[in-house]
Nucleic acid binder design. Structure first.
Length: 368
DNA sequence: AATACGGGGTG
DNA sequence: CACCCAGTATT
């Protein structure tokens, strides 16, 4: 089996795509900014999820200049709940980069893969996606879908996580456009992976099953080849519900790093799978919490790299935050303090809150 | 080459 | 539960 996408395969793929492709809010737009927005959101994120965020984003930031001019706060607010928040920060940087270089070219946007690769937040996938879809530039998208499809189509035994595998696919696909519009071919491969060549596929309905090495050899489930995944650790911690005059205390995380800039309950998470009484006592002392009582329940959540279990407590601040909140925050070592109105116990996992958004916007609530 | 980085859908 | 998703930046 030669690793080559024949013209017949490309034609069959495009015929299938013409019939089965989904409608998406950004699909069919010729505005590079629209394509760029969708691709930033689609990184490691499913189409169905992005469909809920894309319209809000376009309404708030209709073009690259409005995004470049916006405050990061407002950018994060729209992104809230999408995850991988460095994407939003990098997108903001990328918009500033484009706006600055806009005068160097006719369109504000570059029209090729190499130039897009220089934009903050834009890697090999996004550079190929935007340049091919918006400008017809012949660069192949090598995403999770494509890796799976090609592994089966050509019985590729290389681990799909390696650079070697990625490079091999980029070469194979860049020679496989066969006169079709590169942007549509790219989308067609991804759509095939998303709708047909799924982790557990029904190969009888596949337009390429006659060309598929894995299918013909009856080895579909052997591909793609991937290294064993490491188990993620459990981290436990505590969070404190501090109510005062029908308001609830929230703390803002530092701007960089994990969940950067988002708001949360005051509390901590340990790099340990069991509670630590000393850490507990230390936190209460350092943050001057009093009347601490267990709420008798905990919250569990799984992030990309650890499971989390947070035990919940009610408490009061020794010094009410309403008086000299900012000075007090610095004194007790918190980044910032805020509060949200609260008429019942609402568990707010994460959200952004400041003067512009006095009520916050809970990403996830559990009422009790 | 490994690791950090979210949240939701799916079986 | 495990696995996966239109990946990128950092170490």
């Amino acid at each position: 089996m030669q690793k080559h996408i024949s013209k017949n395969m490309a034609d069959a793929l495009m015929a299938w795509f013409g019939h089965h492709r989904r409608t998406m809010p950004w699909r069919g737009s010729d505005d590079p900014y629209h394509i760029w927005v969708s691709e930033m959101m689609l990184q490691q994120t499913q189409v169905a999820t992005v469909e809920n965020y894309y319209p809000k984003w376009i309404a708030r930031f209709p073009d690259v200049f409005s995004l470049a001019a916006a405050d990061l706060e407002d950018v994060l607010k729209i992104w809230e709940g999408l995850g991988y928040y460095t994407r939003a920060r990098n997108f903001h940087k990328g918009a500033k980069y484009i706006a600055e270089h806009a005068k160097d070219r006719k369109s504000p946007f570059p029209d090729n893969y190499e130039e897009w690769l220089k934009v903050p937040g834009v890697g090999p996938y996004t550079a190929a996606a935007v340049s091919s879809i918006a400008f017809g530039y012949p660069a192949a998208v090598v995403d999770g879908n494509v890796k799976r499809v090609m592994a089966r189509l050509f019985c590729l035994d290389e681990d799909i996580a390696t650079q070697k595998y990625h490079k091999m696919l980029f070469e194979i696909m860049n020679r496989g456009f066969h006169g079709h519009h590169p942007g549509w071919v790219n989308q067609a491969w991804m759509e095939l992976g998303s709708l047909q060549c799924t982790p557990r596929p029904d190969c009888s309905r596949c337009p390429l099953n006659g060309d598929c090495c894995a299918y013909k050899a009856g080895k579909t489930q052997r591909y793609p080849v991937k290294a064993e995944k490491k188990k993620i650790p459990v981290r436990c911690g505590a969070a404190f519900v501090v109510l005062h005059k029908n308001r609830m205390l929230m703390v803002r995380r530092h701007a960089e790093g994990f969940l950067g800039g988002l708001w949360e309950f005051p509390g901590y998470t340990l790099k340990s799978d069991r509670p630590d009484p000393l850490a507990f006592a230390e936190f209460i002392r350092e943050h001057r919490l009093v009347n601490v009582r267990p709420l008798g329940r905990s919250v569990r959540h799984t992030y990309s790299h650890f499971h989390q279990r947070i035990d919940l407590f009610s408490a009061e601040l020794e010094v009410p935050w309403e008086s000299n909140a900012w000075a007090e925050a610095r004194r007790i070592g918190l980044d910032e303090l805020g509060s949200v109105p609260c008429s019942r116990l609402t568990i707010k996992i994460a959200g952004i809150l400041d003067e512009k958004y006095p009520h916050g916007s809970p990403e996830r609530e559990e009422n009790n």
